[in-house]
Design a protein around this nucleic acid. Structure first.
Length: 273
DNA sequence: CGGTGGACCTGCTGGC
DNA sequence: TGCCAGCAGGTCCACC
């Protein structure tokens, strides 16, 4: 579900509820996530205080007192919701965190593709999940030259290269398609066919587009919500994603959808070559 | 080695 | 109305 703008929005909405709060109790109702949850380890977080909430790629990190970090990845359908303790539990609420404020944080995830684990702060970047993460989209080191080095060495379709978290960490299918619409590149063009100039255009488009998406609090189709259960608005500003059959926003063309791999690409056949 | 396709899950939608 | 196929924002792994 969530790509970087949604994860960033969720982090921002969590902070007012969690910063400075102490965890009273952690209850694991369903440990079978993508990686089985270590129930004992989560329970042992009782008594810890949340000192900071940060984001690495699409991972959400709670920095706790002591040397520990509580890490979440939301997969396709995960949500972190802050609710009053008397809010009825729902199906697929897998982890419940009781806070000293009286409120609760709940991890909800119908498809259970998400991840929740505890790490030592010092060993964070040795985690298998974080060891190979590429540049953050807002890192100034993300330049056209940086991208071009990967592109010229790869015969993959450009959309797939943008989804590779080892190169740029944070894009998913929506924003990969949108970036290619913004730069007038067809998503199925093989990466090594692109020019250095196009690589520079993509490098500029990535932070620009994601910045916009964050300002609109992310993209909500059906189920993405922030910690206050609020929807994003960026779905109203998408150029191509989920708009097949509709008019291109810049030319008279009609947006096309094609299954590539197991996921759809969307593009304007007139604008994107 | 790089690239592709399937697996992991549940829920929703659209076509018949 | 009901059923079933297909699809969904992510990641990982087996296979060629």
């Amino acid at each position: 579900m969530p790509e970087l703008p949604e994860v960033e929005t969720i982090c921002r909405s969590l902070r007012p509820h969690l910063l400075g709060r102490t965890i009273r109790r952690v209850r694991v109702l369903e440990p079978r996530l993508r990686v089985p949850v270590d129930i004992k380890e989560l329970r042992s977080l009782a008594g810890s205080r949340v000192d900071a909430i940060t984001r690495v790629a699409k991972y959400i990190l709670f920095n706790l007192t002591g040397d520990r970090v509580w890490l979440f990845h939301l997969g396709m359908s995960g949500k972190l919701l802050c609710v009053a303790a008397n809010t009825p539990r729902r199906k697929h609420d897998h982890i419940v965190v009781e806070l000293d404020s009286g409120a609760e944080l709940r991890y909800h995830d119908p498809r259970r593709f998400g991840l929740s684990l505890v790490a030592q702060k010092s060993g964070l970047h040795e985690l298998p999940q974080l060891r190979h993460v590429g540049l953050d989209p807002f890192d100034p080191a993300l330049t056209g030259d940086y991208l071009f080095r990967f592109m010229r060495a790869s015969a993959r379709r450009t959309r797939d290269l943008l989804l590779d978290q080892r190169i740029v960490a944070g894009l998913g299918n929506i924003y990969a398609n949108e970036i290619l619409a913004l730069t007038a590149i067809k998503p199925t063009t093989r990466a090594h066919r692109l020019t250095r100039k196009q690589a520079h255009a993509i490098a500029r488009a990535i932070p620009a587009l994601l910045g916009d998406a964050i300002r609109w609090c992310g993209t909500s189709f059906s189920d993405y919500r922030d910690a206050d259960d609020k929807s994003g608005e960026f779905q109203n500003h998408l150029r191509v994603y989920d708009r097949d059959g509709e008019r291109c926003r810049v030319c008279p063309g009609v947006i096309k959808r094609v299954a590539v791999g197991n996921r759809s690409v969307f593009y304007c056949p007139t604008c994107q070559k």
